[in-house]
Design a protein around this nucleic acid. Structure first.
Lengths: 162, 162
DNA sequence: CCTCCTAGGTTTGAAAAAAGAACTTAGCAT
DNA sequence: ATGCTAAGTTCTTTTTTCAAACCTAGGAGG
């Protein structure tokens, strides 16, 4: 497996690994501590064939690692743990969480908070420039590395998509 | 429409609006400048019924705004533009982009860069504490607002999921 | 006035994916 | 031997998506 992932756009490439139904929820569950098939299954109420497929894809692309474990008095089984690549998704998942809290609020407030371990302070996701200074989202824009990708009539006309 | 969005988890709630196939790519295209049905359609090669459905959902939840426009010598049509809520997704989309660039690289390097408009500096997505200080992702963790949501055997046992 | 053209869709039928339930497998315990 | 359990696979039904064709409203051209 592990196709070379053709898309030119990094977001499209990420979504090819993460964008299928359930995948991001599985990862959220992994961040919440789930490691076993049955835990994901019980928490998410996901069909087992779909879970099996998603875990395989995530392992395949190095987001999760499948490692054996053995409970005392039980047979050896497998656990799925976040790799460093998977752990790097905390910021992406947190960005979605933050957007949900900001724009699709629920009474009672957020159920999960992001907190800095060392200081206990609340944390938000945002942009930081290459000098380490936080920058407002309104002051950030996307720039195309190769200018010919942006035509004036058809934006991103070829190559960027898919 | 516009169901109240039951999920307790903010990520699940966000994904109910954004998590269907194509939705995040449509939004990426919106950030790249597309506003019209035919632009999204041509860029993404998405089936028109699916595009229609996704745009309606996004308008419904206030991520896009559907407003009339008129080209000279043409009939009035509709444009789809990011609302403030939609613009707030730049950070989430950029987080996915950054993860793709970091972990699913393509030769030739990233096709799109995030740059601070006022200074021209490159920008990355990251965590910032409530005193405005950037914090490494390894120093941030999720905390449940109500401790009884985390049992010791079954993590996030009830209510959080779906 | 009538037809063509175009953007912005809707409808229709076929293919792919997900849901839900039943079944399998491997090893430990009784 | 039998049962139990986690971790799946297989099977059938339902839902989504895809691809292509069709529809519609208005402006332009004849």
């Amino acid at each position: 497996m592990k196709k070379p992932l053709a898309p030119f756009c990094s977001i499209a490439r990420s979504l090819e690994v993460l964008g299928e139904r359930w995948t991001l929820l599985i990862l959220r569950d992994a961040f919440a501590g789930s490691t076993r098939f049955s835990q994901f299954r019980a928490n998410l109420k996901i069909a087992p064939d779909v879970l099996s497929d998603r875990l395989a894809t995530l392992v395949d692309y190095g987001v999760l690692e499948r490692s054996p474990y053995q409970d005392p008095g039980a047979r050896a089984r497998f656990a799925y743990r976040l790799t460093p690549s998977g752990q790097d998704l905390l910021v992406a998942l947190s960005a979605l969480q933050q957007w949900g809290d900001d724009h699709l609020p629920r009474e009672g407030g957020p159920s999960v908070l992001r907190r800095v371990t060392s200081s206990g302070r609340a944390a938000r996701v945002g942009f930081i420039d290459d000098a380490g200074v936080p920058v407002g989202a309104g002051d950030v824009a996307w720039h195309w590395a190769k200018p010919d990708f942006r035509g004036e009539t058809a934006i991103m006309k070829d190559g960027i998509h898919d």
